[in-house]
Amino acid sequence: MSLVVQESGKANSGAPSTRGATIHPALLTFIPLLPFILIFGFFFIYPIAALVYVSFLSNENTFTISNYVTAFSKPYNQGFWNSVKLGLLSALMGAIPGAIAAYFLEIKGSVKIRRVIAALNGVLANTGGVPLAFMFTAALGIQGFITVALKYVGIDLYANQFSLATFSGVLIVYLYFQLPLMIIVFSPAITSLRKEWREAASNLGASRSKYWRHVGLPILFPSFLASFLLLFASGFSAYATVNALTVGNFPLTPLQIGGLLDGNVSATQLHLGKALGVVMIVISALAVVPYLLIQRRVARWTS
């Protein structure tokens, strides 16, 4: 706490002293933020700092980079590649149809349909983990009811080596929550597009495609990118669903970290899991860079 101290000349002027502890205005604005800063510090900054620190320790607690050397070697580098690929593909496959669906829902959909879809999306986007894996196994597993029903009409899903425990299988399962999530997070951007802009563009001689090229898409792009990154993060770091589907056998970084922490795999380096975690944090942070660059450009016309 700081004290506002009177200037020495004034203090000696003979006027009644008003000296006392006064809270500095800057501190007054800081105090309400204190709970947030404490939580942020304890549950975000401190664990990351600790993770980074430990990731550079050897089994004997001396400094080493061997954890990172191993992290970028087989099979862990394959895990990173699969996780990034899964994050990007599931984000892309959720983001594009999700954005189009959000547009048609917000612009063309009736209030009733919008309400029903919003409620449905809320449920779907938050369904994950073991229940989601079970739902898909019950529906599309080898003995799943859709698989069996399709067999009755002559379609064998498993004839071409389809499996929920493969990359494409996991991708399909991820779409279940990525698509609704995109509709939820992208709809506000669609509603912020003013009808006047479309009409003004048309009046000024722009066809529909030119309106989208010059006005609609540039306005929506930052929101699209932000939504895409959210979907990427959600796909990149998802653990429980894929763990349940593949019994932890699929080479994805979150599963590899899980395995190392559980001690289910034989690893000679105690802190390898921490190094994998740090690399995941770095990849997530790097993914935000394009968004920050776009956001800097957009800030000129939004703030």
């Binding site: 802009w197 009409e199 003004a200």
Partner: peptide, 15 residues
């Protein structure tokens, strides 16, 4: 080829 001025908020914010 008609110019139109709307009530408000019709300028393109990104330009």
């Amino acid at each position: 080829n008609m110019g139109m001025v709307f009530q408000a908020y019709s300028l393109f914010p990104n330009l």
